[in-house]
């Protein structure tokens, strides 16, 4: 474990590895996003009930899934901070929050743009929408807490504790459509047999992979910049 901490999870190793990976991740992400956008907007057939309005799912679903996946990753980082005392985990946690907040914002905005033509309203206080709004506030709270505490160790521990406590919201978001009667439809792709035609599914999976690549790219860039700043200050 000590070897992993000193080598694989060390700041210099991360910096070297990430700068080597950056061009590859950038190219693969760009290809996936271009295919996903073209496939989602022009190639996938219109939905038999929702018409072309359903095309919003190609930006809404990946944003929402990423918003939850990034928070889950942050909870994992919080364990790394509190239990393993990894410096890199703390850096990954706060930078993930700064990225995740935007994916959550996008999930809410694109969701309301989908809701208006489908449900007749931009917003309703239903379980899925409200729990997603709570997630946005959690992200903002974590960023604000990080900015409010000057002392490093107290800051890192407080942020990790809040991230870990807020993780309870993730299963609530996921199962909200099962536990409560909501306007929001059930899962489309997060089950063994997706309830979507393969011609519609392919661009959606490409967008999902592209958004994941974008998160990796943004995290590497943000962490790399911060690590370099720390080296300069030291």
């Amino acid at each position: 474990m000590q070897w992993i901490k000193q080598h694989l999870l060390s700041a210099p190793h991360f910096y070297r590895l990430s700068t080597r990976l950056l061009p590859w991740i950038s190219v693969i992400t760009a290809i996936l996003l271009i295919y996903g956008v073209i496939g989602g907007l022009f190639i996938a057939p219109a939905d038999y009930q929702q018409g072309d309005g359903f095309r919003i799912i190609y930006v809404h679903v990946p944003s929402a899934l990423l918003a939850m996946a990034i928070y889950s990753f942050m909870a994992l980082c919080a364990v790394g901070v509190l239990v393993l005392r990894l410096k890199l985990a703390s850096l990954a946690l706060i930078n993930s929050a700064r990225i995740g907040v935007w994916f959550t914002f996008l999930a809410l905005i694109t969701g309301s743009l989908w809701g208006k033509p489908m449900w007749g309203t931009y917003w309703i206080w239903d379980a899925r929408l409200t729990s997603m709004l709570v997630l946005l506030f959690l992200y903002i709270g974590i960023i604000a807490l990080n900015d409010a505490i000057a002392e490093r160790i107290t800051r890192e521990k407080s942020v990790a504790l809040l991230a870990l406590a807020g993780f309870i919201n993730i299963p609530i978001i996921h199962y909200s459509v099962v536990w409560w009667s909501t306007l929001h439809q059930g899962s489309t792709i997060t089950k063994l047999h997706p309830s979507i035609a393969s011609s519609m599914l392919a661009p959606l999976l490409a967008m999902l992979a592209g958004f994941l690549g974008l998160f990796a790219l943004l995290l590497i860039l943000r962490m790399g910049a911060e690590l370099q700043q720390q080296v300069t200050h030291d």
């Binding site: 919003i56 930006v59 990225i99 996008l106 743009l113 033509p117």
Partner: peptide, 28 residues
């Protein structure tokens, strides 16, 4: 026109593109 849904589909894609592009530019 997106079958009459253009007023919702294009803003959804536009806001996503602007937010993500701004994030990438800022981070780079």
């Amino acid at each position: 026109s997106m079958g009459g849904y253009g007023g919702y589909v294009w803003p959804a894609y536009s806001v996503t593109a602007v937010v993500l592009a701004a994030n990438v530019v800022f981070a780079y």
